[in-house]
Amino acid sequence: MTTTTQAHAERWIPGRGGLPKAEQARRTRELIIQTGIRCLASAGFANTTMLSIAREANISRGPLHYHFADRNALMAAIAEALPQAVTDDVVKRLTAASTLEERLHAIIDIALDEHLGAHHFAALELLLAARNDPELSAAIRPHFLASEGTIDEWWTQYLSLLGWPRDRLIAFRHVAVACLRGLAIDHLLQGDAEAHSDAIKLFRDMFLTFARQQS
């Protein structure tokens, strides 16, 4: 073994200055998931294969299949990871808002900031693909249902200052999410930045005005 090769191998030996195998495996798994999210958002579900993810992540197919037996297993892991991608900045913006007006502004502004992001498009790709793929649906559905339940609980608590019944609060969230998905798809299909900007401003005004009038 050459000196260079030996040094490279020893990088990953615990206690020799490298990462423990468990941590290396965790990072590889996370790399695969995040690469899968980017591929879904940029290339769509049909073009996101195990091979394309391996190439994009610059890893061999061996580590890929070590962590995920097939594409549906990877898509399930992605579905589980999507709602966990809330950044520290988003958390700070949400927790800093205390009054109802501040919370309404925080929610709609953050949602609009994120609605053209990779995580939003990845979720859309998975949901649309699962409509005609029972095996994919079975793989991702439990994770989407779990995240929806968690978000509903958070939403009803965060906007409890509206004084609305729980079912109305949840319906309000579902309408907002549907509008955001529609805006994202429209932007993708139409590609008209000016029209999209106008639609965003109008939706933001509608969201805030409706909440204020009903509180």
Rank of each mutant, 00 (worst) to 15 (best):
S147N: 12
D133C: 04
A130V: 01
R168M: 15
E153Q: 08
E125Q: 15
P165N: 08
D152L: 00
L161S: 09
A138Y: 11
W155L: 10
S160T: 14
A129N: 04
E148L: 03
A138R: 15
A123T: 01
D152Q: 06
W164A: 05
A139T: 10
R141N: 12
A123F: 01
T150E: 15
L159W: 03
Y158L: 13
S147C: 08
A129R: 03
A146D: 08
E148G: 03
D133Q: 06
L161Y: 08
N132F: 09
T150M: 12
R141L: 10
T156L: 05
E153V: 00
P165G: 10
T150G: 06
W154E: 07
S160F: 13
L162Y: 02
H143M: 06
L145R: 14
H143Q: 09
A139F: 09
S137D: 10
W155G: 05
R131A: 06
A123L: 06
L162T: 12
L145C: 05
R131H: 08
S147P: 12
T156V: 11
E125K: 07
L124H: 01
S147G: 15
R168P: 04
D152R: 10
G163I: 04
R168S: 14
G149S: 11
W164V: 02
Q157N: 13
L136N: 01
L127E: 03
Q157E: 12
P142G: 07
W154S: 07
Y158P: 08
L127S: 03
R166P: 04
I170W: 00
G163P: 06
E153C: 03
L127M: 08
R166M: 14
A122P: 05
D152N: 12
E135D: 14
E135L: 08
H143Y: 12
A138C: 05
G163M: 08
S147W: 13
A146T: 07
D152H: 12
W164L: 11
H143L: 03
A129F: 05
S160Q: 09
L169C: 12
A138S: 13
